[in-house]
Amino acid sequence: MTALSCEVHLEDNTRILVEGTIIDENNSPISDAKISVLIKRSNYSEGENQYVIGEGYSNAEGEFSVTSLYDKDEDFAIEIHGGEDYSTYVYKTNTLEYTPLDLTFNLETVSLKKLATFNYHIERTSGEANTLRYTFKYIEGFCLEYYEGTTLNEFQSSCYQEQVVSQFLNDSNPDIEWLLSIPFGGVVEFTYAINDEPEITEFITINEDNYDFTFTY
């Protein structure tokens, strides 16, 4: 019988330095952003089964300098999480093939977008048997840049990409209430069709930190 082990062995006698500056869209520094050095990070906005090997925070000037352990891993990542108010940025590379000169990952200037919360509430007031098919298209507050060495690979990157949420509401599920994190100032495209009639599209500009959207059918 063979025992399967997922044990990770980090590089002995090695430390790396991760440094850079975090700003918002107005070039103002973002303090207390969390910087995590990760291995085995997936490409999704919410990483799964990832391991933290270094961690730190940006200072009042938005600068950070984090010393971390190191591992040669095809899913090596540095994640910058600006908290609830800002988008998340991920630098990703394959350290099996690339280790930077002088063991320093200098991300230079990373710009995060301010986020707003889009709370939507859809309620059926027209009575039973009426249906609604709807779609929200929006830009998600997440940017992953994949680098091969020092070159950005746009094909493997996914930076502020369009996301789509669709649902069909009927008797078994007539109402919905949910929230999305969207870059402040962004536009949400709301397309709907009541009782399979022709689609109607509305554009909603997110100009409040907490944008409440209510729709009845």
Partner: peptide
């Protein structure tokens, strides 16, 4: 011997 990682899959890292 450095221990106490966020995951049990990393048991230790060593410096000499």
């Amino acid at each position: 011997k450095n221990t106490g990682f966020s995951t049990s899959d990393i048991s230790e890292q060593n410096d000499s």
